[in-house]
Design a binder for these strands. Structure first.
Length: 925
DNA sequence: TAAGTCACG
DNA sequence: GACGTACGTGACTTAT
């Protein structure tokens, strides 16, 4: 017998929803300019809540609770309550009434009550419902609501899909929900302007309550507290604490509220919902709701609306005539969304399986080319022969003119991948557009740029998951084994979505002035990187193999030593076990951290222990270094050698970082060791092919040079113009020592300060880096600010700009969004501020090397040189150069790199490129 | 899948 | 004596 499920009440914190919706979406307007981004986000979130929860969690009752106005009974207790809240943004204000309409349009109750906050109403209903045996989910991430949590009442963050229950509260506050009020009364809350007791934070508050039990008890016996400052503050501010308690205590008896029964979930009424969405111009949401109702209510009305992906029937093209028809359509429309399906995510290893095309929204096809029958499927009823499809070569011969037709734009999502796949079949796809790169140019740092995420974000549609088609884990199959009907649904949908995304993102490039960034820094990188990836780099397998064996032997010796020193065998690679040996069993000094309660065993900790003369940590450090080199490099790189080309082909991500840098993966060739002697041996395994040399060209101090430029620091600019050793200069300014005959230790400190400045310096960080006290670090920083005026101004101005706009820019106009800049959590905000200072420097440097890379192939060709660009490592380019051309290649490379900012931007200090030549990558430095 | 550690600029 | 810290990445290992 099934037990009857309890009623489940969802209480949505309306204001929280509104602000999250508003901040999650870029400014969107209706055709007449009415801002509607918050309304749209709100509707999507509400609809998601109604639709996405599975049956166990489906609400039986649901209401959205709003704040009625700014004045509540709390202002009578404490006039400054929430007084520091800035007014709502201008373009949000007109959306408040629209959102109330939206709730009604979804046939959901909206509740508010004069004189009370939404939180009080939520508290009242939650308490009542729990008494009646309901489960209650409060949809909010506001920590003020944590006091309500019980076994039956949880907080639910619908965006992160996270639940906060009793356990999570204990984690955060060190006490259960029953003590949350008292902790908040002591610690206060800057966001709501609840004063609390100055100088007391959550940690201290929790500790005090541990000791005294209750707030009243604590205040009464405050005189007994040992720490004088703390005692005084508590005695002095006892009243403030009591007032704070009244402020944070939620009322659970708000009068005259509608009955709980009225919250029973009702079906969405199409006659109210659709006209509202029509008025707001939310087309894709209309479609979603129609299809949602279509599932639950077959009599649902059929309002006209643009169909979204998901309810299309796409064409599977299996004969020449149909293929020709699609090619003609694509040529007529002058642009076509293209997607290739293959057997692997790794373009170098992948085999082409099919191509999909889309010419307009909802109109897409899939052309299977390499499908086979799924022979290892459990019950194969077919006869084991491949399904009917057009011959690969015949199809590609027809597609090639279209894909290379200069008058037809090919649109892809991460089209570098398709570019590489097609290049294997001698198709050089051109011209092209990439929705991933458009999204990156517009929204770097704001959201990811994968297709599924973009689709959900911009189209409100969740694409068919890949794993639904190919399975997952052990049962995963390659795409060529997917039956054609399923493959068509999935593949054609991808092309359809890509086309739809382009029609949304491309106009935004114009509106948000990102066309130049996209067209000069993003799109042209596609063929450049694709060719570098295709070229690959030679690695000597024998050298790697010998190193692996060497490391293995030494690891075995170390392992024995370590186990002997520990007095028992254990897994050295396990930080957990190591921590227990070191600190529990051997009783060495060390501190817990990382809030999971685990012992810290990082290199810095072990180094300290080694300094104190302990042998075991010293050996562990050696072991770790070798283990790292072996597993990540000498072993793994051998596996990565392509059996066909004999070379290693990395893949560069163009849209992975927030700053504009590239990233390298499978394998990562941007973190090959160089800093230690052992590590450099790995670099020596990378060699040029027969008759060639490596040329490594790297920008010298590019980020510091850019700092001098953007912060207009005259003395720094002067130094770069004069070619002075910049760290020595900093040392002489900050520490007042002459540059001549400088102590290398002093220079090292200055170098750390310079790096610190680029990273958005903090005394703590510098102190940790240099192993000095925070006070001393602060003195250095102050001295730096005195000697280099202008830097401070730059930092303040940058932060201010970022706070205001939510992003910072490189000198070429690339935007880096930093959402944490206005976070109410101080630590996260500080993080955002440092990122804001760093991003224009790191990002401008990234832009400069991109510009150089884009020009490089043409410049080499024009000079009649054979050199091939193989790798990029942020400020370095590695080339493979025919031995006889080295001397001619260097000046060409140098000229392109040093002049890369021009003509767009004239950097006010020279950009200097150092070149090295060698028979392996290490030697070339 | 998360956390810890460590390789790079 | 509030927070929790240098900026940006990716890969490997253990533990859940």
């Amino acid at each position: 017998m099934a037990e009857k499920k309890p009623e489940h009440l969802y209480l949505v914190d309306g204001s929280g929803f509104i602000f999250r919706a508003y901040h999650a979406l870029p400014p969107l307007t209706r055709h007449d300019g009415l801002p509607v981004n918050a309304v749209m986000g709100f509707c999507n979130m509400l609809f998601k809540l109604l639709r996405d929860l599975d049956d166990n969690e489906r609400p039986t009752h649901l209401a959205v609770i709003f704040d009625a106005g700014r004045k509540t009974f709390r202002n009578e207790i404490y006039p400054d309550y929430k007084a520091h809240r800035p007014p709502a943004p201008e373009d949000l204000v007109p959306q408040f009434p629209l959102i109330r309409d939206a709730v009604k349009a979804f046939n959901v109750e909206a509740i508010e009550s004069d004189g009370y906050e939404a939180d009080d109403i939520i508290a009242t209903y939650a308490t009542e419902a729990e008494k009646k045996g309901f489960e209650v989910s409060i949809v909010s991430s506001d920590k003020d609501l944590m006091q309500l949590i019980t076994d039956n009442i949880t907080l639910y963050d619908s965006m992160k899909n996270k639940e906060i229950g009793v356990e999570q509260v204990i984690e955060k506050f060190g006490h259960g929900p029953d003590k949350v009020i008292e902790i908040q009364a002591l610690a206060g809350d800057s966001a709501d302007n609840v004063p609390g007791v100055p100088g007391i934070g959550v940690k201290t508050a929790a500790q005090l309550l541990d000791e005294y039990g209750t707030l009243d008890e604590l205040l009464e016996r405050a005189g007994e507290i040992k720490q004088p400052k703390r005692r005084e503050k508590l005695l002095e501010n006892a009243d403030l604490a009591r007032i704070s308690r009244d402020l944070v205590t939620l009322k659970r008896d708000v009068p005259d509220l509608p009955d709980l029964d009225s919250f029973k979930v009702r079906d969405i009424d199409p006659d109210t919902a659709l006209p509202f969405l029509e008025e707001m111009e939310f087309r894709s949401l209309q479609t979603k709701i129609l299809s949602f109702m279509g599932n639950s209510d077959p009599t649902a009305s059929t309002q006209p609306a643009e169909p979204g992906p998901g309810d299309e029937s796409y064409e599977c093209v299996t004969d020449i005539k149909a293929l020709k028809k699609w090619i003609t359509m694509a040529e007529r429309s002058r642009q076509v969304a293209v997607d290739t399906e293959t057997t692997s995510l790794d373009a170098m290893r992948a085999k082409l399986v099919g191509v999909s095309l889309s010419v307009e929204s909802g109109k897409a096809c899939y052309i299977p080319l390499g499908h086979v029958s799924d022979t290892d499927g459990e019950l194969d009823l077919g006869d084991g022969t491949a399904p009917e499809q057009i011959d690969l070569k015949e199809a590609l011969d027809l597609l090639k003119p279209l894909l290379e037709n200069p008058a037809v734009l090919k649109i892809g999502q991460n089209i570098k991948y398709d570019y590489l796949i097609l290049a294997k079949h001698d198709i050089h796809i051109h011209p092209l557009d990439d929705t991933m790169l458009m999204s990156y140019a517009l929204d770097a740092g704001r959201n990811g740029h994968g297709m599924d995420e973009l689709s959900e974000l911009h189209l409100g549609y969740k694409p068919i998951p890949f794993k639904e088609v190919c399975g997952t884990g052990k049962k995963q199959i390659t795409f060529d084994k997917v039956p054609l009907d399923k493959a068509t649904d999935y593949a054609a949908e991808d092309a359809d979505i890509t086309g739809r995304l382009q029609r949304i993102l491309k106009p935004r490039l114009v509106q948000e002035h990102m066309v130049t960034v996209y067209e000069t820094l993003e799109r042209p990188m596609v063929p450049v990187l694709a060719n570098m990836e295709k070229e690959g780099i030679l690695a000597d397998r024998q050298v790697l193999n010998r190193l692996s064996n060497d490391f293995a032997e030494r690891l075995a010796v170390l392992e024995k030593d370590i186990h002997k020193l520990a007095g028992k065998e254990f897994n050295i690679a396990s930080p957990k076990q190591l921590g227990e040996i070191l600190f529990d069993e051997m009783g060495l000094e060390g501190g817990k951290k990382s809030k999971t309660g685990a012992w810290g065993t990082g290199a810095d900790v072990l180094e300290k222990l080694a300094m104190d003369g302990h042998e075991l940590p010293e050996r562990v450090l050696d072991w770790r270094q070798l283990a790292k080199l072996k597993s990540t490099y000498t072993d793994a790189l051998q596996e990565q050698i392509d059996p066909v080309t004999g070379r290693i082909h990395t893949s560069y991500s163009l849209a992975a970082t927030t700053t504009g840098r590239l990233s390298s993966n499978d394998p990562n060739l941007q973190n090959i060791p160089i800093r230690t002697e052992e590590g450099r041996k790995i670099r020596q395994a990378f060699v040029p092919k027969e008759g060639h040399k490596f040329l490594a060209a790297d920008y010298s101090q590019i980020e510091l040079r850019l700092l001098a430029h953007v912060a207009e620091m005259d003395s720094l600019k002067q130094a770069f113009n004069d070619g002075i050793d910049i760290h020595a200069l900093t040392a002489s300014e900050v520490f007042g020592v002459p540059i001549e005959g400088m102590d290398p230790i002093v220079r090292r400190r200055a170098k750390a300060i310079n790096f610190g400045i680029i990273y958005g310096i903090s005394a703590f960080g510098l102190a940790r880096q240099l192993g000095i006290s925070k006070g001393e670090a602060k003195d250095y920083i102050d001295a730096y600010f005195v000697k280099f005026p202008g830097i401070r101004h730059y930092m303040e101005e940058t932060k201010e700009f970022c706070r205001k706009h939510g992003y910072v820019q490189t000198v070429f106009g690339r935007k880096c969004h930093i959402s944490s800049i206005n976070d109410k959590n101080g630590a996260r905000r500080a993080f955002g501020e440092r990122a804001a200072i760093n991003a224009p420097l790191q990002g401008s440097a990234a832009d400069i090397i991109r510009r150089a890379m884009i020009r490089m192939p043409g410049a080499l060709e024009e000079a009649g040189l054979q050199a091939k660009m193989l790798l990029q490592v942020h400020d370095e380019l590695v080339f493979e150069v025919p031995e006889g051309e080295v001397e001619k290649t260097i000046p060409v490379v140098r000229k392109i790199m040093e002049g890369a900012a021009l003509p767009a931007v004239e950097i006010s200090v020279p950009l200097i490129v150092d070149c090295g030549v060698g028979d392996n990558w290490d030697q070339a430095h």
